[in-house]
Amino acid sequence: MAPGKKKKIPLLKIRNIEAEKKHIILKTENLSIGYRKKQLEKVVASGINIEVTEGELVAVIGINGVGKSTFLRTVSGIQPELSGHIEINGVNRKNISSERLATMISLVLTEQPLSKNLGVAELVALGRQPYTNWIGRLSPGDLKIVKNALALVKIEEIQEKKCHELSDGQLQKVLISRALAQNTPLMILDEPTSHLDMYHKAQVLKLLKDLSLRTRKAVIFATHEINLALQLCDKIILMKPNEVVQGKPQQLIQKGHFESIFPSDLIVFDTATESFRIKT
């Protein structure tokens, strides 16, 4: 055995011990999000203090318009924060260049990819862009990662297809696979299950759960699937008009946080079944 390989074994062991004390991937302190137009500030949500560690699957839940997308867009650097700060992998996001950020955060957006004529493997391979040379040539290493990303999401059999030939559920998986190929510690998804039927919703969320366990990525997604999120997620970020709370699903239920996310005139949260019911 080469001497170089011998050295690596204790390193791996140390990492395993370290895994007990989980590494923080995303941390926000007193974060205030919203829009700034000239001098006017429109605050969507403020006082957001959350912490997401590696291997965690986290759902962002809240009523339409409460700022779920704004929150995710701010964290991922698409729009600036109003105040407070965001730390990614222990580094203040303001000090991270966009090139470096591309190796830390990968996105799955609600916006459909522009070119529906892209092949599946081709689209997934675009996830390697932050790592390729000036013309975007894929190295054997890149190709291996792409292959792996296709395999993790189990879409190898459709890799030759064009995007316009795919169903919504398949396309969603392809986009997730692309984000995987980007090989970032944090993956952010904005409503990855909208447009999907109940079966495919569960399938996509189950996939995210598996990915967070197997790749140790922190996976954050906005969703309206409260029932599924309660069953699958390690943590939930609950966005309410006046406060943002985070916690394990059971903790949030016990503290009665779910009762107040929607106006109480139509639906109520039933703690016994851990689901919403129509008010009778």
């Binding site: 991922s76 650097g77 698409i78 966009s98 090139e99 470096r100 950020l101 591309a102 190796t103 955060i105 990968s106 996105l107 957006l109 916006e111 459909q112 990819p113 522009l114 070119s115 892209l118 689209l123 675009l126 996830g127 862009q129 932050p130 975007g136 980007q182």
Partner: peptide, 15 residues
């Protein structure tokens, strides 16, 4: 090539 995914994705790829 990044732009084929749309501007938001292109930006998230460091462009």
């Amino acid at each position: 090539n990044s732009l084929l995914l749309g501007e938001q994705y292109a930006r998230s790829l460091g462009m």
